[in-house]
């Protein structure tokens, strides 16, 4: 239980939590995100796309880790350009990288507390928020175990805990379900639905069924561009029986990608 402050219930002054216009981001020399237009508001958005589509680079740019090479990117109503002061935006961000390193000597609690401190949370709120985040991902029994003793799925959940510890307004999760067993994936979907009520969540994944089950919105990218944005039900209707895939949603996914590739090839 915690008290909801007036600032949390105040209406926002921006139309979209995430707004990208013609966004271009480099990964090394290669332009991995090339002219992407994207608007996201509250809800759970599933980011789908083949390998090398620019998903991770897009995530990094949204997390303000990478500098955009061009275009406009607005997060929580504030422009995130080369010279912008990112402090205020970053306080409202939660980010789980695809491969995240950690300090093996830290316990889970120390790790999440350290991240909460880096996110400049008020000192008095840190222990409570840490405990709450650890409980939400179901790691309470392992809270005082060292990070190096955790299994891959537990590490992933510790990573999710540090991402949600500051109750972010924009939560970016890059392949969070890797290494989770089927039961944990169900719990994770539950957590996503719960967080997505008042937060803009962007989940990058390869599992189409995760997206259909837990997301309110599907974003499909290919070769650094937006291919499709719509509801999971709409994705299902895109496919026909003659497209590869074991579920209607997978058939819809491959239908959209093929259509985009043939259009691009012309």
């Amino acid at each position: 239980m915690r008290t909801v402050s007036a600032a949390e219930t105040a209406p926002t002054t921006y139309p979209w939590a995430v707004h990208a216009e013609g966004l271009r981001v480099r990964a090394g020399r290669h332009l991995a995100v090339d002219g992407l237009d994207l608007t996201l508001d509250t809800g759970v958005h599933g980011l789908l796309g083949p390998n090398g589509a620019g998903k991770t680079t897009l995530m990094r740019a949204l997390a303000t880790v990478l500098k955009p090479a061009g275009g406009k990117l607005t997060l929580l109503g504030e422009s995130v350009d080369a010279r912008a002061d990112l402090r205020r935006v970053r306080r409202g961000l939660g980010y789980l990288p695809q491969q995240f390193g950690f300090y093996p000597r830290f316990t889970v609690r120390e790790f999440v507390e350290y991240m909460a401190w880096l996110k400049e949370m008020p000192k008095a709120a840190v222990p409570g928020a840490t405990q709450r985040a650890i409980e939400r991902v179901g790691l309470a029994a392992k809270a005082d175990a060292r990070m190096k003793t955790l299994s891959g799925g537990m590490l992933r959940r510790a990573g999710i805990a540090q991402a949600i510890v500051n109750d972010p307004a924009v939560l970016l999760l890059d392949e969070p379900t890797v290494g989770l067993d089927p039961e944990q994936r169900l719990d994770f979907r539950e957590l996503l639905r719960d967080v997505g009520v008042d937060t803009c969540v962007l989940v990058s994944t390869h599992l189409v069924e995760d997206v259909v089950a837990a997301c309110t919105d599907v974003v499909l990218v290919n070769e650094g561009r937006l291919v499709y944005q719509g509801t999971p039900d709409d994705l299902v209707t895109q496919g026909g029986d003659n497209f590869p895939g074991d579920s209607p949603a997978e058939r819809g996914y491959s239908a959209l990608l093929r259509r985009h590739r043939t259009e691009g090839g012309r």
Binding site: R90, P97, F100, G101, F102
Partner: peptide
């Protein structure tokens, strides 16, 4: 050298 660089680089305290 910093294993957690990607986590830290996205926080407001980085700088």
């Amino acid at each position: 050298a910093d294993p957690a660089w990607e986590l830290i680089a996205g926080t407001p305290a980085a700088g």
